[in-house]
């Protein structure tokens, strides 16, 4: 899958909000791409555009099906769409509001099958539902119940089962574990990883939690005000961030170890209004390395090392602080 210059505007009477502007990245099969950013940076909107839950303003999502020619997922016609939609599925943020309270769990998981394979026999459907439910660790004997009888972690498993029942290739996980307790979070993350290995899934993992993203992702993209400001392999990004925003974001994460003294880089103020973004580099109002050039010209999003993309004028010169993997590993022991 390849995402090119994806843009989404929300026009209103007075102003136009550029929720996502010109985001591009590649997704290889079997990979996990993490997308991080503060609330309001457009990461959810981007995820929804990718699955075509909302129409994008411009740009393309090139999808390479298992067989046949690559297609632009955003412009294909209805018939083709129907065929390909089962390949790309989504897991939603809130397991409490994304399940219909009036449907039993069996029906919830079965619904995508009914929509996509109306001719499938009832028995076959039941069988598939049971199969997938067992796979995600749901107790099969409880499936006739309604969602309210399940806990948060169980509900999220239902959501995962629903996304998986069509045997998709790509799953967009929008804050899939954010609403869960830490111990349940660990269970769900482990489950997602196991399923990935088993079914050769590709994840686009959207989250604001950097530690979860670091754990699960092969590559990570950082978004700020609708733009991708940095994109690189996980290790490269966390050991040697190139964008000041990434550096500040990483320093703000509390580490579960009182021995590590945090040297926080204060990020003053808040995310500016996306309807009226600052001139030049969007981040210059909060950047501690800001120079005159940043206020005037928008930086180019470019490849600075192989596979490491960044949008900052001074990416080459700045020596930004990341995590030193070896050092922290020693401390841990």
């Amino acid at each position: 899958m390849e995402i090119n210059h994806l843009t989404k505007d929300f026009p209103s009477k007075k102003v136009c909000v550029h929720a996502v502007s010109d985001v591009s990245f590649e997704v290889n099969e079997g990979e996990t791409i993490g997308i991080v950013g503060e609330s309001g940076c457009g990461k959810t909107t981007m995820g929804r555009c990718v699955v075509r839950a909302i129409p994008a303003t411009s740009g393309e999502v090139m999808y390479y099906p298992a067989e046949g020619e690559p297609v632009n997922f955003l412009t294909i016609d209805k018939a083709k769409m129907k065929e390909l939609r089962k390949d790309i599925q989504m897991i939603f943020q809130n397991p409490y509001s994304s399940l219909d309270p009036r449907m039993t769990v069996v029906d919830i998981i079965k619904e995508p099958l009914m929509a996509n394979f109306p001719k499938m026999s009832k028995e076959e459907m039941e069988e598939k539902v049971m199969d997938i439910a067992a796979k995600v660790g749901l107790n099969v004997s409880y499936l006739k119940r309604y969602p309210h009888a399940f806990s948060g972690g169980q509900r999220q498993r239902i959501g995962i089962a629903r996304a998986l029942v069509l045997k998709p290739r790509v799953i967009v996980c929008d804050e899939a574990v954010s609403a869960l307790d830490v111990s349940i979070q660990a269970q769900v993350i482990n489950l997602l990883k196991d399923l990935q290995r088993e079914m050769n899934l590709t994840y686009i993992f959207i989250s604001h939690d950097l530690s979860v993203v670091e754990h699960i992702s092969d590559k990570v993209g950082v978004m700020y005000l609708g733009k991708m400001v940095e994109y690189a392999e996980t290790e490269s990004l966390f050991t040697r961030p190139r964008h000041p925003y990434t550096e500040a974001l990483m320093s703000a994460v509390p580490v579960a170890d009182p021995e590590i003294k945090l040297d926080r880089i204060p990020l003053a103020g808040e995310i500016p209004n996306p309807a009226n973004p600052p001139s030049g580099c969007y981040f210059h109002t909060r950047c501690r390395y800001c120079k005159d050039k940043c206020k005037e010209a928008a930086p180019e999003y470019r490849e600075i090392e192989t596979g490491h993309y960044v949008a900052c004028h001074y990416a080459e010169e700045l020596m930004l602080r990341g995590f030193n993997y070896e050092e922290t590993a020693d401390n841990g022991n």
Binding site: V182, K193, V212, E235, V255, F323
Partner: peptide
């Protein structure tokens, strides 16, 4: 069960 950021631990998280 918490992944410690900055440690290159790609293994399974311990879960209760």
């Amino acid at each position: 069960s918490v992944h410690k950021i900055g440690t290159k631990n790609q293994e399974r998280l311990f879960s209760i």
